[in-house]
């Protein structure tokens, strides 16, 4: 569905010295610096996939999404949407995509929500019958029906995002790009958004590309994760496989009856508080059951808890990894 091939994006930034002197100098001589925002990306996204696209600020993640949606022209390389080069055939290719950028809206601020939809209906040449059907589906998922007569400027952020999601889905795009869609949303709206993504993926088979800093979004929605940093691919694969590989350990918290700190040759002690000791051990070395058995031979155990390495560990580690 989406092919990203050998993608590069460079920006030229003119450097200016400080103060008046620097400004005057810049009038005569401009020093240009080239910033490589995206530095050779290659990947393919298949139909119906939900892909989490993550990276720290300034990683080149937004630049990549903007090249994938036809907003920015790549310095070299190409993005194909359903086989079509989006830079060269922008007008045709963008018919297949829907875009929601969390901080921006494509809705007309001054008018009722339905007026914005009406314009999109003309722009995408959507038949009235199809329009009504899509709207009904979106109403059943998001409850957007009751918002149609409300001026966008009077909406809460959660309502506005619902409006934007519906707007992006009106022409039934094959791919939906969501850039930080949950930013600033309350728990209820976040839940509605996640439900929406799952359902359009299930009902319409829409491919979803999602960038987020919200770990909950990723854990709940994405099977596949692409991590990018410094403009290059750090990780691309199945979420649980990445977890397995980057963080192949678990943490076992053991509560004893007394304040004791028994050690184990294959486990590292992370913390001790009151009667609770937390052990970190590699999954490959032993099972949690073996560790519990060994420890219980030393001291009586009151309670245990197992913590998997979380997605936040993965992201932290991936962000820290240098190329």
């Amino acid at each position: 569905m989406i092919t990203v091939r050998d993608l590069y994006k460079e920006y030229r930034v003119t450097e200016r010295g400080r103060g008046l002197g620097g400004t005057l100098k810049a009038l005569f001589k401009q020093e240009e610096k080239i910033i490589k925002a995206v530095n050779g990306l290659d990947f393919y996204v298949g139909k119906g996939e939900i892909v989490g696209f993550i990276g720290p600020n300034g990683s080149g993640k937004s630049t990549t999404i903007k090249m994938m949606t036809g907003i920015l022209a790549p310095t070299s390389g190409e993005v194909l949407i359903d086989g079509r080069n989006i830079t060269r055939y922008r007008k045709e290719a963008v018919r297949d995509i829907g875009v929601v950028f969390g901080q921006r809206t494509q809705l007309n601020w001054d008018l009722r929500l339905e007026e914005s939809f009406e314009l999109l209906r003309h722009i995408y040449r959507i038949e009235k019958k199809d329009y009504r059907e899509t709207l009904e589906v979106m109403d059943s998922i998001l409850g957007v029906g009751e918002l149609l007569n409300k001026p966008v400027r009077q909406m809460s952020l959660g309502q506005r995002v619902k409006g934007d999601l519906t707007a992006a889905m009106l022409h039934s795009p094959k791919v939906l790009f969501l850039d930080e869609p949950t930013i600033g949303l309350d728990v209820g709206s976040k839940y509605a958004l996640r439900k929406f993504i799952k359902e359009i993926n299930a009902i319409k088979g829409t491919t979803v590309i999602l960038t987020t800093h919200d770990l909950g979004d990723i854990q709940e929605l994405c099977e596949r994760l692409i991590i990018i940093n410094g403009g290059v691919m750090m990780e691309d694969g199945n979420l649980s496989e990445i977890v397995e590989r980057i963080a192949p350990y678990r943490t076992l918290a053991v509560e004893y009856y007394d304040a004791v700190v028994p050690e184990h040759a294959k486990a590292e002690i992370l913390s001790v508080s009151d009667n609770v000791v937390r052990y970190k051990f590699m999954k490959a070395d032993m099972t949690a059951a073996e560790l519990i058995r060994d420890l219980s031979e030393l001291y009586p155990i009151k309670d245990v808890g197992i913590e998997e390495a979380g997605i936040d560990d993965i992201i932290r580690i991936a962000y820290e990894m240098k190329k």
Binding site: K66, T69, G70, I71, R90, K91, E92, V94, R95, I97, V99, F101, R104, Q106, I123, Y124
Partner: peptide, 11 residues
């Protein structure tokens, strides 16, 4: 502000 124009199938 050109972002949203670029993602639509019009000039």
């Amino acid at each position: 502000e050109f972002d949203r124009f670029l993602t639509r199938p019009l000039s």
